[in-house]
Every structure is written in C-alpha cells, then in structure tokens.
Amino acid sequence: MTRFTRLRGFPLSTWLPLGVLVVITLAVAVGPAFLPYRAEEIVGDLWEPMSWAHPLGTDQLGRDMLARVLEGGRTSLSLAAVIAGLAFLFGSGAGLTAAFLGGWVDTALSRAVDLLMAFPPLIFALLTIAVLGNSIPVLVTVLTLFEALRIFRLTRSLAMEIAVQEFVAVARLRGEGIGWILFREILPNGMVPLMAELAIRFVFGLLFLSSLSFLGLGVPPPAPDWGGMVRDNAPAVSFGLSAPLVPAAMIAIVAVCVNLVADSLLHTRGRSRSAEG
C-alpha cells in the first residue's frame, strides 16, 4: 500500500483537524506580512472590542490582537516544534540503543530516566530556570530533556518488541552493523506509534511552555507568545472582556487538533494490523 492511498482512507475526523492545523500554520508563518499593523505597534485604546479594523480587538496596551496572536504563534509553535523534534531525536536514539544493546547500557540509561522522571517536571523546570535565567536556550534544553524521557521509554519498549523478530536475527546473521539494524530494520517498524508520540509530545511541549510563560518564567519579553499573552491580558477577565481567551483558545485548538490527528494515526495502525493478521 502506498502512502497516498493510506492517507485517502482517513475519515473526516482526521481531515478536519489536519486542515485547521495547516491553516493555523500558514497564517502564523506568512500572515503577519499581510497585516497593516506590526505586533509591537500601539494602534488604539486598550482592550477595544472586535471590529473591522481589529478583528480580534486590541490587547492590554492597545496593540492589535490578531497581529500579536500570529506573532505569538510563531514563537510558541516553533519552540514547541523544536523541542519535540530534539526530544524525538535524542529520546528515540537512546531508546533504540538501550533496547538493542541491552546489558549495562540499557540498565544505566533506564535507571537514569527513572530517576529524572521521579522529579515533578514543573518544579524541576522552575528551579532550573530560576538558577540559570529564562533564556530560550535554557527553556529548550529543560523541556527537551523532559519530553525525551517519555520518548525514550516508548521507543525502548517498541524496539524490544521488534528486536526479537526473526528479520532482525537475519540481519545480525548477515553481519549488519548496529546502524543498519537500528535505523533500517527496527525503526521503520515502530514509525507510526512514534510519529503519534511525536505529535503528542509537541502538544505537551506547547502546554508546558505556555504554563511557564503564564507563570512569567517562559519566553522572555518582548517577543509575544501565547502563554505570556494570556498572562498579560488576564486582568481583562475581571471586566468581563474576552481578550485573554483569544490566545488561550489558540492553545486549546492546536492541542485538540494535534491530538485528533495523532489518534487517527494510531487508529489506522490498529486497523491495518488486524487486516493483515
């Protein structure tokens, strides 16, 4: 079955969130160029309601909300993507190595991961950032570490399941090196659940990052990001204004859509497995 026909089999519940994600990504990527205002430009009164000039109203300093949401999305989404990508790279690499080599390598890596997972991530992150300062490299490092732990565990268990299959024994008997066995024999067979995990890690990265920003320890100002925008606009809630709901809604929409897509990825995997068996 080619990749294309597999995609065509997806139901509406996959296409719809996928479409929403594509629209949001495009808007965030190229949208700011088409807007009349820049994100940091003060263009009106504070917390103006929605209007033709300002489709999402204005923020606590009178800046255009739409421009800021798009600009903030750039920061939030790209950081979350970088974190998920790096975590995937390190987590799955280490997981594969641990599963295939076994022995002391596996024990050392697994126990180290257990140890790190025993810390509550938020408290650990707050401490680290408090000590090292909230710069973007520190944020990315800390978050990548925590995301990688989960990916390590999943990859390791998947790879162990695959490594005992006979086609891996065939490759070993042939004299293949560890690189070939890990990346050509084992990894392709675990790709679907790993891709779904990657998507979920992206969501958790986004949420974690937004939480930290909301607490004031996330993305340093002046660059806007969604979590920080919720914090900045939070006082508006006491006046019954909807301003903080706009960035909050963006976080929620992205999280739900990515989850739906990841879900259906896993779902089709189950379907195709049972059809083969």
Binding site: Q165, F167, V170, R184, P188, N189, M191
Partner: peptide, 16 residues
C-alpha cells in the same frame, strides 16, 4: 552460511 526460519512472516521486514 545462511539460515531460513520457520515463520516467514516474522523473518521478512514488513517495511521493506
């Protein structure tokens, strides 16, 4: 020295 296994389903990588 080559080897052929009992269950061909698991002896062939499904992604190749």
């Amino acid at each position: 020295m080559q080897m052929i296994f009992q269950i061909p389903d698991t002896a062939l990588n499904p992604r190749q």
